[in-house]
Amino acid sequence: SFNTVDEWLEAIKMGQYKESFANAGFTSFDVVSQMMMEDILRVGVTLAGHQKKILNSIQVMRAQMN
């Protein structure tokens, strides 16, 4: 498990989005775990492969939080 959203993004090789997530207010796992595709688009993730990777990881995160 990760301590910060930045660490999580690095771990899934999506570190290039750290600033975008932070600027959009997605700075805690409570918020990130609620993200939908529209949120991912809003933070500027436009590549389908990256969207899928982030969404898949969020689903895993949700499962671990319950």
Rank of each mutant, 00 (worst) to 15 (best):
R42C: 07
V31K: 14
A11N: 11
A63H: 13
T27G: 06
N3S: 13
V60I: 14
M37L: 13
V45E: 01
F21Y: 03
A24G: 10
Q51L: 07
A48S: 10
V60G: 10
V32G: 00
K52C: 10
V60W: 11
Q51D: 02
Q16F: 06
I12H: 04
D30P: 09
I40F: 05
L41E: 11
V43F: 02
L55K: 04
Q16K: 07
E10P: 01
K52N: 13
E19W: 09
D39A: 04
Q59Y: 12
F26G: 02
N23D: 13
V32E: 01
M37E: 10
W8A: 01
F26T: 02
S33R: 11
R62D: 05
N3R: 12
M14W: 01
Q51V: 09
I40D: 00
S20G: 15
T46P: 04
G49I: 15
Q64G: 11
S1F: 13
K52H: 12
K13L: 13
K13N: 15
M61G: 02
T27E: 05
A22F: 13
V31Q: 10
L9F: 03
Q16V: 11
Q16R: 10
R62V: 12
E38Q: 10
R62Y: 09
L47V: 13
D39K: 02
K53L: 15
Q51C: 06
S1T: 15
M65F: 07
D30G: 09
A63I: 09
T4C: 08
N56W: 11
K53N: 11
T4K: 06
H50T: 02
E38N: 08
N3K: 14
R62I: 12
S1C: 11
Q59T: 09
K13H: 15
L55T: 03
V31H: 09
T46S: 10
S33G: 06
N66Y: 04
F21K: 00
V32Q: 00
T4N: 11
S1I: 14
A11W: 12
K18N: 05
E19P: 06
N56V: 09
N66R: 02
I58R: 00
E10H: 06
K18D: 02
Q51Y: 05
L9I: 03
F2D: 05
N66E: 15
F26M: 10
L47D: 15
S33V: 13
A48H: 12
Q34H: 09
M35G: 01
D39M: 02
R62P: 04
E38M: 08
I54D: 00
N56Q: 14
N56Y: 15
E38T: 11
A22M: 12
F26P: 00
V43K: 00
G15D: 09
Q16H: 07
S28H: 07
F2K: 06
S33K: 09
V31E: 10
Q64W: 09
E19S: 10
K18A: 12
V31G: 06
T46Y: 10
V43H: 01
E19C: 07
V5N: 00
V45Y: 01
A63Y: 07
A22D: 05
L47Q: 13
S28M: 05
S20I: 08
F2P: 07
Q34A: 12
E7S: 09
S33F: 13
G15R: 05
G15V: 05
N56L: 14
T4H: 07
H50A: 05
A22P: 01
M36R: 15
L47K: 14
D30S: 10
F26N: 03
L41G: 05
W8D: 00
M35Q: 01
K13I: 05
N56I: 12
N23Q: 13
R62K: 15
M36T: 15
N66I: 15
A24S: 10
V45G: 01
Q64T: 11
T27I: 13
I58A: 03
I12R: 02
N23V: 13
M36A: 12
V60H: 15
M61E: 03
N66G: 13
G25W: 03
I40Q: 00
K13Q: 15
I54W: 01
D6T: 08
K18R: 11
L47N: 15
A22Q: 15
